[in-house]
Simulated assay, not measured.
Amino acid sequence: MLRIHFTGDDLVRTTLAAEPDALWEVSISMHRLQRRDTGVIFGPWRAQVLPRTPRSVRLLSPLAPAKGYCPDFLTPARGASRAAQIDALRSTGRQTVRADLDEFRRQNPRLRLPPWCTQLADGDARTLSRLADAADSYFDACLAPYWDRVRAHVHRDRARRVALLAHGGWEALFRTLHPSARWSYPVLELDYPVDREMRLDGRGLVLQPSFFCRYNVTTLVDPRLPPVLVHPIDHDPGWADPARPASRTRPLAALLGTTRAQLLHAVADGAATTQQLARRIHTTPANGSRHLTALREASLIHSQRHRNTVLHTLTPLGTALLNGRQPPLPA
């Protein structure tokens, strides 16, 4: 559980990032790449970028594992341009690098860092420069071709949250930030891999939408760094292939009906509540609930109660149907 403690000053200073953060997307998309995600949302992107992933990514992958802590120093200069971030990464101080690598070993005890990390911890500028170059090359090869689409999704998410803030205040924004979010002033609670108390102490909080963040929120470990909360956003299935003709999605609507087909695509974006799914496809919660029941009875989605709400996810059969693959045989 992550508990973020606000004061009145913190609410005044809390902001919504206007753009995706290049180096957060580098680190988080590396998780996606190493998890071998073949799902509806990121599977097509992964298949497209794997053949052109630069060899230098081998420097990044040990520090951005499929699961677990990623060193804070890999995401510096938040809000700056990518060039400024790469320069900041290249000039990270030795004490910061060493402390973050120690934290990596503590949080990922089953993972072994490669020998060159010893040079990194000792302040070897050449090794750190190679790491910065690897992040830059990875962005150019695997993220830059999609960056306009990434930015468009982030801008859409921000516009929706600005509207929520305007009409319902911080309570409305915080409660819809993530399916696990619980807001009771002055504390925002969210599901998190470990128990952690995050005290803003008047510094405010940057809410940073992330395109490649899928299920859980994430943040920096070092409490001395400017507070940031990185959170997932909604995706359009097929975003990695925008030229895909609409006719390829029509058979699903013909089979299930338009509303159920839209809901199935919306569920593919990750665990979500009935209200969130209804909002995504512009229908009422009551209508969405009725169609979700039909999808659940057809074994296309799975619904599980989570505290005081119900979260919906795709089943293997639903995933196969969206991907146009042969459905899995029953055991």
Rank of each mutant, 00 (worst) to 15 (best):
residue 75 T to L: 04
residue 75 T to P: 07
residue 75 T to A: 15
residue 76 P to Q: 15
residue 76 P to K: 04
residue 76 P to T: 08
residue 76 P to F: 01
residue 77 A to S: 06
residue 77 A to F: 13
residue 78 R to T: 08
residue 78 R to L: 11
residue 78 R to A: 04
residue 79 G to P: 03
residue 79 G to Q: 04
residue 80 A to T: 10
residue 80 A to E: 08
residue 80 A to L: 06
residue 80 A to W: 01
residue 80 A to C: 08
residue 80 A to Q: 09
residue 81 S to G: 07
residue 82 R to E: 03
residue 83 A to V: 13
residue 84 A to Q: 08
residue 84 A to S: 02
residue 84 A to L: 12
residue 85 Q to Y: 04
residue 85 Q to G: 08
residue 87 D to C: 14
residue 88 A to V: 02
residue 88 A to C: 02
residue 89 L to N: 03
residue 90 R to P: 10
residue 90 R to Y: 09
residue 90 R to M: 06
residue 91 S to Y: 12
residue 91 S to P: 04
residue 92 T to A: 09
residue 92 T to L: 14
residue 94 R to H: 11
residue 95 Q to V: 13
residue 95 Q to T: 13
residue 96 T to C: 11
residue 98 R to T: 04
residue 98 R to S: 07
residue 98 R to L: 05
residue 99 A to R: 13
residue 99 A to C: 13
residue 99 A to F: 07
residue 100 D to R: 15
residue 102 D to Y: 12
residue 102 D to F: 09
residue 102 D to H: 08
residue 103 E to Q: 13
residue 103 E to R: 09
residue 105 R to H: 00
residue 107 Q to S: 11
residue 107 Q to I: 07
residue 107 Q to R: 14
residue 109 P to D: 13
residue 111 L to R: 01
residue 111 L to P: 12
residue 112 R to C: 01
residue 112 R to Y: 03
residue 113 L to K: 10
residue 113 L to Y: 09
residue 113 L to D: 15
residue 114 P to N: 11
residue 114 P to T: 05
residue 114 P to R: 12
residue 115 P to T: 10
residue 115 P to R: 01
residue 116 W to T: 05
residue 117 C to Y: 14
residue 117 C to P: 12
residue 118 T to L: 13
residue 118 T to E: 15
residue 118 T to Q: 07
residue 119 Q to V: 03
residue 120 L to N: 12
residue 120 L to G: 05
residue 121 A to N: 04
residue 121 A to Y: 00
residue 121 A to T: 01
residue 122 D to M: 02
residue 123 G to E: 13
residue 124 D to H: 08
residue 124 D to R: 13
residue 124 D to E: 07
residue 124 D to Y: 06
residue 124 D to K: 10
residue 124 D to V: 03
residue 125 A to I: 15
residue 127 T to V: 08
residue 127 T to N: 15
residue 127 T to H: 15
residue 127 T to A: 13
residue 128 L to M: 05
residue 128 L to W: 05
residue 129 S to F: 07
residue 130 R to Q: 06
residue 130 R to C: 01
residue 131 L to V: 04
residue 131 L to F: 06
residue 132 A to C: 07
residue 133 D to W: 01
residue 133 D to P: 04
residue 133 D to V: 10
residue 134 A to Y: 02
residue 135 A to F: 00
residue 135 A to Q: 15
residue 135 A to D: 11
residue 136 D to I: 00
residue 137 S to K: 15
residue 138 Y to V: 10
residue 139 F to R: 14
residue 139 F to W: 11
residue 139 F to G: 07
residue 140 D to A: 06
residue 140 D to I: 08
residue 143 L to G: 03
residue 143 L to Y: 04
residue 144 A to C: 06
residue 144 A to V: 06
residue 144 A to L: 10
residue 145 P to G: 05
